[in-house]
């Protein structure tokens, strides 16, 4: 992304970035959502703007604060002093100066800001198209070129530009992966473009930033920027034919329950299960978490989730297994056994 960054601008930003680095070096805490640790060109471009603006506004603020401090000390009324300050209705050159100088500084900020606005508004060549659909409280990912559908955990080839088309199936959401770049609204009836890209392989946290209901706080996501081979392996897993569990096993019983109770909402590739209100569960076991980053994926959590997801996510739209779906503990264990075969 060197193309648009003049050396002068880099030099100007250096102090601000150094300052931020200093502020952060004290704390060795890892911050998976930090804008200040960009991991791709879009995020870096945006951080550069932050750095540039910080230099400019930092200088202005510091100047104002110093003058204010001087005034407060120097022109303090001495006790018993009843004299007046000398009136001064205005000084033209001064007033012109403090109008023109800030205006000039703003131009300095506006120019890169505008060029970046236009740059970020269109897809980068060779990008991978993914449709991102916000749902009350989870993310659906549709790989338009690959014909894949998954949820909450987005696998992409590392360093490949992403051409995301973001929309919503219900209310307003907003899609954000801070270390890869800025956010965009997921609005029903609209498809908003977002360009993200990673520098290399890595795992990047993301989340919904638009209040979307009771579990807005539990609408996280993860982007896995995979090496080419890892991405290929993942894709192969998702597309391989469905193999039904051996007859008579717990999983086979679970599959029947799934067909009766779950398939109206959940789809699994290669089966007759085509529900679309809930996340696609194809190759579920490849995920690290369930419930949009709410719980680690393991047997115990799957049981708890199917038993009653609203314990973890208030207002969740998945009905409780114990309540509304009227499943027994044994049935829940069977269904989970079936889920565990999904890989």
């Amino acid at each position: 992304m060197g193309r648009r960054h003049g050396r002068a601008r880099r030099a100007a930003e250096a102090p601000a970035v150094a300052l931020l680095a200093l502020a952060l070096s004290g704390c060795s805490v890892e911050r998976p959502g930090s804008v200040l640790a960009p991991a791709g060109p879009a995020a870096r471009m945006e951080l550069d703007l932050l750095g540039l603006s910080l230099v400019v506004v930092g200088a202005i603020s510091a100047a104002v604060l110093l003058v204010l401090l001087y005034i407060v000390v120097r022109f303090r009324a001495r006790p018993g002093d009843a004299s007046e300050g000398a009136d001064n209705p205005g000084v033209t050159w001064l007033e012109v100066a403090w109008t023109a100088v800030p205006a000039g500084l703003l131009v300095l900020l506006a120019v890169p800001s505008l060029t970046d606005t236009f740059y970020l508004a269109k897809p980068v060549a060779g990008g991978m198209r993914v449709t991102v659909v916000g749902h009350q409280y989870w993310w659906e990912y549709r790989y338009d070129d690959l014909g894949l559908v998954t949820a909450n955990e987005l696998h992409v080839p590392a360093a490949r530009p992403l051409d995301l088309r973001v929309t919503s199936a219900d209310v307003m959401h907003e899609f954000w992966v801070p270390r890869l770049g800025g956010k965009v609204d997921a609005a029903p009836g609209r498809r908003n473009f977002l360009y993200l890209q990673s520098d290399g392989p890595g795992v990047f946290a993301g989340e919904c930033t638009q209040l979307c209901g009771a579990s807005h706080a539990h609408m996280l996501t993860t982007v896995y920027a995979d090496t080419p081979s890892a991405f290929e392996a993942w894709r192969a897993e998702l597309t391989k034919p469905f193999s039904p569990p051996p007859p008579g096993s717990a999983a086979a019983r679970g599959m029947q329950i799934f067909a009766a109770k779950c398939a109206s909402c959940h789809a699994i590739r290669g089966t007759a299960f085509k529900g679309a209100t809930g996340p696609d569960l194809t190759a579920l076991m490849l995920r690290k978490t369930i419930g949009a980053g709410t719980l680690e994926l393991n047997r115990e959590n799957l049981v708890r989730w199917v038993t009653d997801a609203s314990v973890f996510k208030p207002g969740v739209l998945m009905p409780s297994g114990k309540g509304k779906l009227a499943l027994t503990d044994a049935q829940i264990r069977d269904v989970v056994a079936f889920l565990e075969t999904l890989r």
Partner: peptide, 30 residues
């Protein structure tokens, strides 16, 4: 009134920062 000045300066300059659209893609709703 005097306390207002530095604080409003800070609020004002972060206003300029969020006015830069691409940078605001990061700040917005946070």
């Amino acid at each position: 009134a005097v306390g207002f000045i530095p604080i409003f300066v800070l609020g004002g300059v972060t206003g300029v920062m969020v006015a830069m659209a691409p940078a605001d893609y990061q700040y917005n709703m946070t």
